[in-house]
Amino acid sequence: MTDKRKLNPWLKLALDIGPVIAFFVGYMALREKSLAIGGTEYTGFIVVTAAFVPLFAASIIALWRLTGHVSKMQIVTLVLVVVFGGLTVWLNDERFFKMKPTLIYALFAAVLGFGLMRGESYLQLVMDEVLPMTREGWMILTRRVTVFFASLAVANEIVWRSMSTDAWVNFKTFGLTIATFAFFMTQSKLFQTHSTAPEEAGEDGA
């Protein structure tokens, strides 16, 4: 869709991370409880997951309606959230939702890695408008992001398989967010070196 509209940064941030924060708050409130629905006992984790799926879908739809655009990464993430969130609730098994970040990051790493083998940066295709850089810069960043995503996939597997649900929820809510923010902060030198953004006019309008 080509009709892209700018969105208030704070509203966009709320739509991006709001569902994750809501999941965390909901889990903290219900983690010690269980609910009987239709004769089946569900833990607080399962109940919160059931609420998270439509909330996340609603945030993606809202982004699309407000901006006229949704990235391929967001669409893939939505599909995986619906599939694995649905399996978690349907089978009453929290493991499906816990492995979702692993599959998301592994899939993104695999797609970016495939592009690199073809000598292309698929990351550039989805981020070029917001981060103009040289082709060399994009190739370097794509290699780094590929390794980073693969590392997050491994980290998620280790956490959910070896630690408590409380630890995983904290890792998902804060650990992954902080790690992603820190990673892109460390790439500032790369962005500056390979930026192709036009320089602002100097003195006397030069």
Rank of each mutant, 00 (worst) to 15 (best):
176 L>E: 11
99 M>K: 02
30 L>D: 08
171 F>M: 09
110 A>L: 15
23 F>Y: 15
2 T>F: 09
154 V>Q: 01
176 L>N: 07
161 R>N: 11
34 S>P: 08
167 A>N: 13
5 R>E: 15
83 V>Y: 06
37 I>L: 15
106 A>C: 02
7 L>G: 03
58 A>M: 11
49 T>R: 12
65 R>D: 02
46 I>L: 13
39 G>P: 13
38 G>Y: 10
104 I>D: 01
174 F>I: 12
94 E>P: 07
23 F>L: 15
189 K>V: 04
153 A>E: 01
126 V>F: 12
134 T>C: 02
56 F>Y: 13
65 R>M: 08
104 I>C: 05
184 F>H: 11
60 I>G: 02
201 A>I: 04
82 V>C: 05
185 M>E: 00
89 V>F: 06
180 T>L: 10
19 P>S: 09
152 L>V: 01
40 T>M: 14
159 V>I: 14
172 K>Q: 10
89 V>Q: 04
117 M>F: 14
183 F>N: 04
145 V>W: 10
84 F>Y: 15
181 F>I: 15
110 A>H: 06
177 T>L: 15
79 V>C: 03
22 A>G: 12
32 E>N: 15
189 K>L: 05
125 L>D: 14
197 A>I: 02
109 A>W: 02
131 L>N: 13
170 N>V: 10
6 K>N: 14
50 A>C: 13
52 F>N: 13
117 M>E: 00
10 W>G: 04
47 V>F: 14
183 F>P: 08
116 L>A: 11
132 P>W: 09
2 T>I: 13
104 I>P: 01
193 T>S: 06
4 K>G: 00
70 V>Q: 03
142 T>Q: 05
151 S>R: 00
146 T>C: 09
114 F>G: 15
69 H>N: 12
151 S>W: 00
194 H>Q: 04
203 E>V: 07
93 D>T: 09
159 V>L: 06
9 P>E: 07
132 P>T: 09
92 N>Q: 03
114 F>K: 06
149 F>M: 10
11 L>N: 00
9 P>L: 07
171 F>S: 11
135 R>G: 00
81 V>Y: 01
64 W>D: 08
136 E>N: 05
202 G>P: 01
125 L>V: 14
154 V>A: 09
14 A>L: 13
71 S>Q: 09
85 G>H: 11
174 F>N: 08
174 F>H: 08
103 L>G: 04
199 E>R: 15
106 A>R: 04
158 I>W: 09
30 L>W: 13
29 A>E: 09
157 E>R: 03
95 R>K: 06
96 F>V: 07
170 N>S: 10
17 I>D: 03
120 E>V: 13
16 D>V: 07
186 T>N: 00
57 A>R: 01
114 F>R: 11
90 W>I: 12
57 A>Y: 01
203 E>G: 00
196 T>N: 02
21 I>E: 09
15 L>S: 07
1 M>W: 12
81 V>C: 03
14 A>P: 01
42 Y>K: 14
165 T>C: 03
86 G>R: 03
53 V>N: 11
109 A>Y: 04
47 V>P: 12
118 R>T: 11
120 E>R: 15
192 Q>R: 12
99 M>D: 02
66 L>P: 05
38 G>E: 10
122 Y>V: 08
76 V>A: 10
162 S>G: 02
40 T>E: 13
127 M>V: 07
122 Y>T: 12
70 V>R: 04
125 L>I: 14
56 F>N: 04
51 A>G: 14
41 E>H: 14
31 R>T: 10
137 G>A: 03
107 L>D: 01
123 L>D: 00
204 D>C: 00
